[in-house]
Structure formats: structure tokens, C-alpha cells
Design a protein around this nucleic acid. Structure first.
Length: 423
RNA sequence: GUGGGCGUAGUGUAGUGGUUAACACGUCAGGUUGUGGCCCUGAAGAUCGAGGGUUCGAGUCCCUCCGCUCACCCCA
């Protein structure tokens, strides 16, 4: 073995591209249908952007970022998620001057230094959307609807939508205090990790998988019971919209999950995750929420926003579990078989002319005729076009159908050949 | 960072401590003059993950490291 892909990365080989294209094409189609425009931001940004956007205390910033100093001494970081960069672009390009909300989607690679496992990579790809500049619940519903449309579009089955509201900067402190009060009496029974969480970020206790903690969580106070009037109105309004969505997307299960919190600091009010049926390691395939404080935190005017990110590799993983058949649709229409030097010269030209006419054309390698036909067959080509000395002299070519073996003569002319292929 | 499983041609596998490491698929070349698939023949392709140790002898037993993989943490 010499070189391998770096750990946690992988090559997408031609055979896998069709499945990949299905996911990405569906994402783009659905996003456009909802009026979202594509944005592509750089793969790396100033390290500060992620530290402030994602949150210094998060695992992502603490131990998962690919950070490096460039030759000019700037600290840069390969993006670990998509929202921070999009918000930076929103501010930088004065998008608050556009009609609000600004609807954007993105598709691209994300980087996190993790130990790889199923559905977990160091470089993975996300399709995500952001709706920035409108804080109303109808936008929450729109983003969730877009997620449902996307997932059903790629053929995912048996998904569960989990939903929660974690309040905002005004009402969350009271909830955090209530959580601490609830857990403190049991602190002695908590693991070391969870005890640290108790003081620093009690929300995280809720999604702890430590056996004892999980049981305790059943009786823990619910964030929705601590929402202030505005947050509560927002939440109730959203729940109304969700009732309607349930009817339209009856394949999905919906549940309010009081223990749903997110690992990124910027979320406010609405948070949601969509989970596949198999309770596997890779928990959610799509997740997002509202981030009404993020733009301001990054130096813009106070601006609400909401979005989601979804892992393309996880979708593909789940799709193959559903045994969706892989279809290869780009076999060549014609393989040109050439015998002799003069014929080869003519065939190189003819191949170029056919390609200019949109025909998927492959020139066979310089082998025996039998070898070239075998080659055409191994590529699953539709036709073989045979050209040797005889054909050159007559000004014709033999067009052989590789499905039924029938052979006809056509004039040695790209236009005629293309027409025959399409007949 | 922690733990479990696994490392033999490109791929998938076989190989009671004992000669030249086997098979299938794939690749390439042939199977008379210019006609594919099936079939037949042949060839190339592996320092058995790496390094040490035990032994007359190691792909096989032991140790270390590396890699892959699954899981924990966390996440998409």
C-alpha cells in the first residue's frame, strides 16, 4: 500500500455517483421550488467566525476543527458547518437590503476532526438551507416543510420528526436554573462528565446517554413550560402549522421531544431533528433550528434566522439500507471499432464529430477486432460502429446493434451515423 | 480521547507450524483470414499490513506499532 485517502474521507467512485446525484439533485430541485437560491461560501473562514458563531464551549470548536495558520499568519478553519459562513455572507453583502427573509441553500463539504464510524466522517457533505430576516413561525414551518419535501423526494421512509422549543435569551436562564435545581440533588449519582455539564451547560444533560442520567431526565422540567409569552406564542403557532403538515406528510412520525437540545450554541426557540428508523449510531439525518441571535453575534444588526443542515452521506447510507436499486445510465451509445492506421485516423475524427452532435461515443482501444468488440460489450454499449479498410474505400461504415447483433451499412458521415443511432 | 472486531493479488475468499501461498470474479492476450456476450486456453497481478520474538521451520503462535471497521463521546 502506498497512498490511501486520509482517515475519515473517501472517494466517490463512478458507480456511486448516480445515487449521489439523486440526493443532491433532489435537494436543489426542492430548494428552488421553495424560492431558495444557491449560495456557495468558501471552504475555510476566519477561525473567529466559528468560535463566535458555533460557540467556544461546543465540542465542535473545542476539539473538532481543522484550524491552521496560513503564510500570512491568519488563523483559518475548514468549515465544520454551513450556517456561520452563510450568515457572514448575509452581513458582508448587505442582504438585509433585500426582501426579507433571504432564502438560501447550500451544498458542500464540511470538515470535523472526529473518529470515523458509520455515517460519521472527517469530510462529509451537507445540503442545508437558511431563511434569514424573518422571525415568524410561518418561516419555521416553511423550513420544516422543505425538509420533509426533500426527504420524501429522495425516497426516505419511516422517518421521525422531533421538535422542541428551547426559548431564547430572555426566558432560557430561568429554565436552566430549574434544570440545575432538579439535577443537583442527584449530582452524586451522575458521571463525571454529566456533573461538569450540570453547571456549565445543563441543557446537555438532557441528551446524555449515561444510563442513570437518562432515567432522571424523564422527570426533568420541560423547556416549553418556561417559555415567555413571545416564545410561547411562537411555539404554539408553529405547532398549529405542524398539525397541517402532518396531514400532508403522513409517512413521517412527528413527536415533541422535550429532551431535544442541540450541540451548537446559536439555537433559539425552535429546534428540530429528523431521525431514521434504525436506532443506529448516526442519530439524525437532518437537523436545524432557529438562531435569532447569531447575526448580531457575528457583528450584524439584530436579525432572526432559521435553517437546517442534512448529511448527504447519511442519506445515502439509509437509502442503500432501503435497497434502492442502483441504475447505471451512462453507457456509451456507440463504440467505434477501427482496423488499420488509416481507419484509426478517420475514426478519431468521426468520434469527435459524433460527440459534437451529443452522441456518447467511445473509441475502442487498438486491439484485434474481436478484442474491440469484447471491449464494446463490456461497456454495455448500444452499438458498435465498425470501420476498416473496406469501409474507407466504400465510404460506409457497419453499424452493429449489440443487443440483437443486426448489422447495417451507413454512410461514413457523422450526421448520417448520428441519425441512424437515434432511429 | 476510550473500547471491541478485523488486516492474504484490483475485489471477495481458502489456507491442521512444514516444499514453488490456492480459488472465484475482474484485467490483459489468444482460441487461423475483419464480428461481442457463453465456452476454452494462457498471462500478469501478493515482499500474506509493518517490525521484532519463539522455532530446525511462521500466512499460521507471542509482543509492539500502523491501518481499516464498529461503538462510546459528540454530531450531519
Amino acid at each position: 500500500m502506498t497512498f490511501r485517502v486520509p482517515r475519515g474521507t473517501y472517494d466517490i467512485l463512478p458507480e456511486e455517483q448516480t445515487r449521489w446525484d439523486l440526493v443532491t439533485a433532489t435537494g436543489e430541485k426542492v430548494a428552488r421550488q421553495f424560492g431558495y437560491g444557491r449560495i456557495s461560501t468558501p471552504l475555510f473562514e476566519a477561525t473567529d467566525l466559528f468560535e463566535r458563531g458555533v460557540g467556544v464551549d461546543t465540542d465542535i470548536v473545542q476539539k473538532e476543527m481543522y484550524t491552521f495558520e496560513d503564510h500570512g499568519g491568519d488563523s483559518l478553519t475548514l468549515r465544520p458547518e454551513g450556517t456561520a459562513g452563510v450568515c457572514r455572507a448575509y452581513i458582508q453583502h448587505g442582504m438585509h437590503n433585500q426582501p426579507q427573509p433571504v432564502r438560501l441553500y447550500y451544498m458542500g463539504a464540511m470538515f470535523r476532526y472526529e473518529r470515523p464510524q458509520a455515517g460519521r466522517l472527517r469530510q462529509h457533505h451537507q445540503f442545508g438551507v437558511e431563511a434569514i430576516g424573518d422571525g415568524s413561525a410561518q418561516v419555521d414551518a416553511e423550513v420544516i416543510e422543505l425538509a420533509l419535501g426533500f426527504l420524501s423526494g429522495i425516497g426516505m421512509e419511516g422517518l421521525t420528526v422531533k421538535l422542541n422549543s428551547i426559548g431564547d435569551g430572555d426566558c432560557r436562564p430561568a429554565y436552566l436554573e430549574a434544570l440545575r435545581d432538579y439535577f443537583r440533588p442527584h449530582a452524586g449519582g451522575l458521571s463525571g462528565v454529566d456533573r461538569a455539564r450540570l453547571e456549565r451547560s445543563p441543557l446537555r444533560l438532557l441528551d446524555s446517554k449515561e444510563a442513570g442520567t437518562a432515567e432522571l431526565c424523564a422527570g426533568a422540567p420541560h423547556s416549553v413550560d418556561f417559555l415567555d409569552d413571545q416564545c410561547l406564542n411562537h411555539w404554539n403557532e408553529l405547532l398549529g402549522y405542524v398539525e397541517d403538515l402532518k396531514l400532508l406528510y403522513s409517512d413521517f412520525k412527528f413527536q415533541i421531544d422535550h429532551r431535544l437540545v442541540r450541540g451548537l450554541d446559536y439555537y433559539t426557540r425552535t429546534v428540530f431533528e429528523i431521525h431514521p428508523p434504525d436506532v443506529g449510531a448516526q442519530s439524525s439525518v437532518l437537523s436545524g433550528g432557529r438562531y435569532d441571535g447569531l447575526i448580531e453575534e457575528l457583528g450584524g444588526a439584530s436579525t432572526p434566522g432559521i435553517g437546517f443542515g442534512s448529511g448527504i452521506e447519511r442519506h445515502i447510507l439509509n437509502l442503500s439500507r432501503q435497497e434502492s436499486e442502483s441504475c447505471g445510465g451512462d453507457a456509451p451509445e456507440v463504440v467505434i471499432i477501427h482496423l488499420g492506421r488509416a481507419a484509426t485516423r478517420a475514426c478519431v475524427l468521426l468520434a469527435a464529430q459524433l460527440r459534437l452532435r451529443g452522441v456518447r461515443t467511445v473509441l475502442a482501444p487498438g486491439r484485434s477486432m474481436r478484442g474491440q468488440l469484447r471491449y464494446a460489450d463490456s461497456l454495455s454499449a448500444g452499438f458498435a460502429l465498425i470501420i476498416g479498410q473496406q469501409e474507407l474505400e466504400r465510404g460506409t461504415a457497419s453499424l452493429k446493434s449489440l443487443s440483437d447483433g443486426k448489422q447495417t451499412d451507413v454512410a461514413l458521415d457523422a450526421e448520417r451515423v448520428a441519425a441512424s443511432l437515434r432511429a
